[in-house]
Simulated scan of single mutants.
Amino acid sequence: MINVLFSAPEGRWAQYERPLTEALDDAGVAANLSTHHSPEDVDYVVYAPNGGLSDFTRFTRTKAVLSLWAGVESIVGNETLTMPLARMVDDGLTEGMVEWVTGHVLRHHLNIDLHLHGQDGVWRDWVPPLARDRKVGVLGLGALGSACAQALAALNFDVTGWSRTGKAVDGIACHHGPSGLDTVLARSEIVVLLLPRTPQTENILDAAAIARLPQGAVVVNPGRGALIDDDALLAALDASHLAHATLDVFRTEPLPKDHPFWAHPKVTVTPHIASETRPASAARVIAENIRRGEAGKPLLHLVDRDAGY
């Protein structure tokens, strides 16, 4: 019998206890799952970074820390976390992100807001272009970015993708490196940010990068708040270089009530809902990783500490 510690904010245990128990049973793993194991007795930690656990020094027999979050920037630098760390990649996260991204890209492509906010008796006969004539750029071609790029391409959008290192995604014209970023930005009428937060990606959409976007471009960010220079974004919106920004992630969350994003007419704020971890699907990923760990197989979705994700 292995000991699995669930460490997450209060309230999450009620959501995860049953799905995790069932998933471990289905995986054939005999586990004592609890929120109160002694650190020295723990074999695996199921972990959310905002759950209060930050010192892993006493977890001397722990084989792996299995995060419930896709992003690991808040924990990857923890010097006490010396055991393997796996991030969350699961079908529920991917499907949720694809649905949110395609919904907002379609919203801006069709200019739905024009009619939602224009119920004033004016017959606006603006006709959108077809998707094949709309250029969309996706920055970040990991599991989420690749899935979103392919979903948009399946709707016939003209999609290009960018990553820091070279990647290949079926059906997508892929670019990488600084020159590749310039190429993608220069053509993107709608740009979607799905990069991890690392020292190399912070403020990747700064004033200079925003200036490379076409006049009237739209920014959609469900990735990480720190990918964008907030002041540069607001300046570009005020100058009408950018038409709109739809933002799901922010440097401070919840977004402070006095932040200018709330009141800006060209900004849409959504409360970090683009891709919430669903307990049922996340539990299956956790259980599979524990099964693999106990069988001596490589864990899924291991974090590269040097790369930061």
Rank of each mutant, 00 (worst) to 15 (best):
S163N: 14
L141P: 10
N78K: 12
M88K: 02
S74K: 15
P84N: 07
V219T: 12
G140E: 01
N3S: 13
D26H: 09
A48E: 12
A282R: 03
G145T: 03
L299Q: 03
A207V: 11
L247T: 08
T246N: 06
V65E: 05
L110S: 05
A236F: 13
T183W: 01
A143Q: 07
P271M: 03
D248C: 11
P129Q: 11
L234A: 05
E276P: 00
D125A: 13
L185N: 11
S34H: 00
T35H: 00
S74W: 04
V191M: 06
I75T: 14
L139P: 13
H301E: 09
A245I: 01
R305P: 12
A217M: 10
M83I: 08
E73D: 15
T268G: 01
T165A: 08
G296S: 03
H37Q: 06
L181M: 14
L193I: 11
A217E: 08
D306L: 12
D158S: 14
F56A: 01
V138E: 00
T60S: 15
T82N: 09
L299V: 05
T183M: 05
S188R: 10
R87Q: 12
L66Q: 12
P199V: 09
P49W: 14
G92Q: 01
S240F: 09
D43K: 03
T270V: 08
